[in-house]
């Protein structure tokens, strides 16, 4: 009697062990399938396209051309123009998002504000974030229209004598779309910083005050270092996402005037769907991927060290 039950138990254990090894993959199978179809295969395809000519919509059959497409793109000054615009757009956005996000989070976290006022302001501050890029584009085109409300105040305050062409001037278009992106993106930082600030122990500040630290010193030596892991993650993620921004540019300037706001994303889109140069578009798509992965590697590393 006892023997049977023991052998049953060992059998049970082996069975359970086998099951335990298969089970996690069973739960993961839909994910693995989707990732293969939506990520690995497409990336392999885009690598392949970038090494070929005449892909997707062509009269002639595809032919292998090696790195010719890369040479072509890397000697195209319009590509470097788009790269420069993208870097300006992304770096300026990341810095301004950080500053505004932290400033607003600290204002909201201030002890002099009551909880009701706080939650009211928090909702207002998050507002820009709930609008999708195409709606943000409509909104700012309305405000920045030559006869629009922003120019009314610019003229009224004497900053300008004639309506400013915010989005169609070659000098102003890039700073303007960057500003719009700053406006729409800071709440992501703010929300994360708010959580981060609430996680900093009050004892640290008390100890600092006892040591006679000023407000600025408390900020520099307690707040900033405590937020550092959050800041690094956010900045990298934001940089990657901002370099991908397509909709906002497409719906405000379309990359114009005369390529003044051309980004890597709009440049690639036009190569593919305006010029039907799918091979060249795949090549720039690969270069954007390389840029993202370069930053992405640091992001993953940072996430991993934060987890361990």
């Amino acid at each position: 009697m006892a023997k049977i039950s023991i052998s049953n138990e060992t059998q049970n254990l082996t069975w359970q062990r086998m099951k335990r090894q298969a089970v996690p993959f069973a739960y993961l199978s839909p994910t693995l399938l989707l990732l293969a179809v939506l990520s690995f295969i497409p990336i392999a395809t885009v690598v392949y396209y970038s090494l070929m000519n005449n892909v997707i919509i062509t009269k002639d059959p595809p032919s292998f051309v090696g790195l010719d497409n890369y040479v072509k793109i890397l000697s195209d000054k319009n590509f470097f123009n788009a790269l420069g615009n993208t870097l300006f757009f992304a770096i300026a956005s990341v810095i301004a998002h950080f500053v505004l996000g932290l400033l607003f989070a600290m204002l909201l976290n201030s002890k002099v504000v009551g909880p009701v006022t706080k939650s009211l302001f928090r909702v207002i501050y998050i507002l820009p974030w709930v609008f999708t890029a195409s709606i943000i584009a409509v909104l700012w085109r309305l405000l920045l229209y030559p006869n629009g409300v922003v120019n009314y105040f610019m003229l009224g305050a004497g900053f300008s004598t004639e309506p400013i062409e915010w989005l169609s001037s070659r000098q102003l278009a890039l700073p303007t779309v960057t500003f719009i992106n700053i406006w729409s993106g800071y709440p992501f930082y703010m929300v994360s910083f708010l959580a981060g600030l609430q996680g900093i122990s009050e004892d640290l500040y008390e100890a600092g005050k006892i040591d006679g630290a000023s407000g600025i010193q408390l900020f520099r030596f307690i707040t900033l270092p405590q937020l550092k892991p959050v800041i690094i993650s956010l900045a990298m993620l934001d940089f990657i996402w901002t370099t991908h921004q397509f909709t906002l540019i497409w719906m405000t300037t379309g990359g114009g005037p005369v390529r003044a706001t051309e980004m890597l994303s709009t440049f690639t889109y036009k190569l593919a769907f305006t010029s039907y140069e799918f091979s060249l578009a795949s090549t720039t798509a690969m270069l954007i991927l390389a840029l993202s992965l370069f930053v992405g590697v640091f992001y993953v590393r940072n996430q991993r060290s934060a987890n361990e």
């Binding site: 885009v46 990657i240 690639t268 593919a272 798509a285």
Partner: peptide, 9 residues
């Protein structure tokens, strides 16, 4: 961190 524009084609 994979750009949508890379996947688009």
């Amino acid at each position: 961190s994979v750009p949508p524009i890379t996947l688009m084609i």
